[in-house]
């Protein structure tokens, strides 16, 4: 197995994109997420249409631009302004916005009373959880690219040759998994450590919790990519990216959303990403791993199932002489 692992690393220099993923994409994305999440909550931009009146109110969270004419609707769509406010009569304003009703109410109330309602911000997700959500998505998407040696070996019939040696297909997959795992885990962990220790950026987790959560995320991505690489023969990365993006969106890895459909809830509750998000949210809130035995058990269950299915399929294919 060590031989296989060493073989993977020897072949890395020829696979430029593996290096790109590990050294460029992962750090870049993590950096970007931290940057975006770390920026203080940006003020709402309001276009205030009025010929003479100065804006009646002032607040650090609300930036008001006074103008004579209504801005283009597309500026509103693109988010240049969050709302357009027009004075109808004294102390009465109409608010045009594409945002949800509660936001509209908030702005209306603000202009009428000069104060923001108390519960004007929805509970925001912690920065650490946001970062881990994105990392999970990236890991799931890029895991397959880091598993590329396996389908590569099959195409070049070196896999068949390896199967003729005393090495079993399971051992081969374990070695491949170790490679994928380390290529995902090491750069991610490294970047976050640098951010945390050198730049003193608040990641939201302690080191121990962070290590544990990252191990879970990368292990899941590794099992998933091994599974996909075992099941599919062509267009593996395309299919994997598609599945990863969709499931991560639905599981709320990128942003929280309130689902209004029980049916959809039932579907998304099956996904392993969901308990992962719950877990990291809780950990960021100060709880420990022992508070989430079910969530952890469920994710581990997924890892085991994906892993066994993948290795079973490979074993079957080898026995049938497909490779």
């Amino acid at each position: 197995m060590l031989t296989i692992l060493r073989n993977r690393f020897l072949r890395v220099p020829d696979k430029l994109y593996i290096i790109i993923i590990a050294v460029v994409i992962i750090p870049l994305v993590i950096g970007a997420v931290i940057y975006f999440s770390g920026a203080t909550q940006s003020p709402y931009k309001i276009a205030f249409i009025s010929k003479e009146d100065a804006p009646p109110v002032k607040h650090e969270l609300i930036q008001i631009e006074q103008m004579n004419e209504r801005p283009a609707m597309s500026a509103l769509v693109m988010g240049k302004y969050n709302a357009i406010v027009e004075a109808v009569e004294d102390q009465k304003y109409t608010v045009t916005t594409y945002k949800d009703e509660s936001f509209k109410k908030t702005i209306e109330e603000y202009f009428e009373t000069g104060k923001l309602p108390v519960n004007h911000t929805t509970a925001k997700r912690g920065i650490g959880t946001s970062i881990l959500g994105v990392i999970l998505l990236i890991a799931l998407m890029q895991g397959v690219a880091l598993t590329t040696f396996y389908p590569d070996d099959r195409n070049k019939s070196t896999f068949k040759r390896i199967m003729m040696s005393p090495l079993t297909s399971r051992q081969y997959l374990v070695a491949q998994g170790m490679f994928t795992f380390s290529c995902l885990f090491v750069p991610t962990y490294f970047v976050i450590l640098v951010m945390k220790i050198c730049f003193k950026i608040n990641i939201g987790f302690g080191l121990g919790a962070l290590t544990g959560l990252l191990i879970i995320a990368t292990a899941l991505a590794t099992a998933f990519s091994l599974f996909m690489a075992s099941v599919m023969n062509r267009n593996i990365s395309l299919a994997t990216s598609g599945i990863s993006i969709l499931t991560c969106l639905l599981a709320g890895c990128l942003f929280n959303y309130d689902s209004q459909s029980k049916w959809l809830d039932a579907v998304t509750n099956i996904l392993p990403q969901k308990p992962f998000m719950t877990l990291s949210q809780g950990m960021e809130g100060g709880q420990t791993f022992s508070d989430f035995p079910w969530q952890i058990g469920y994710i581990v269950g997924w890892i085991i199932v994906l892993w066994f299915e993948g290795s079973l399929i490979t074993k079957k294919k080898v026995q049938k002489g497909i490779y």
Binding site: L76, Y98, Y257
Partner: peptide
């Protein structure tokens, strides 16, 4: 997924 961020009607 983003349905709830948008108000009804305009967009």
């Amino acid at each position: 997924v983003t349905q709830s961020f948008f108000g009804s009607g305009l967009l």
